[in-house]
């Protein structure tokens, strides 16, 4: 299982995947707004989305798990 984490704090602007989606390595999975910049968070490895742990508009700390991939 791979956890996609917020590498810096910010607000979840968009979740770009749905449960069960298969994603490729480096695919944009979440857009995090940080320092007024919409920064894409990339999947560190390929996998299937098994959990979406955050929702749009939510503030997340650095290190928060955003999405889990199987």
């Amino acid at each position: 299982m791979t956890e996609v984490k917020a590498e810096w704090p910010g607000v979840v602007s968009e979740v770009k995947v749905s449960l069960g989606d298969s994603v490729t390595e480096d695919q944009e999975v979440v857009i995090l707004e940080s320092m007024k910049m919409l920064t894409p968070i990339l999947a560190p490895a390929a996998g299937t989305v098994s959990e979406i742990a955050v929702e749009q508009g939510q503030y997340v700390d650095e290190g928060t798990t955003l999405i889990k991939l199987d």
């Binding site: 810096w8 910010g10 940080s34 320092m35 910049m37 920064t39």
Partner: peptide, 10 residues
């Protein structure tokens, strides 16, 4: 690099 930490100086 605006892709990381919004480009801010950390």
């Amino acid at each position: 690099d605006p892709m990381a930490v919004g480009g801010s100086l950390d």
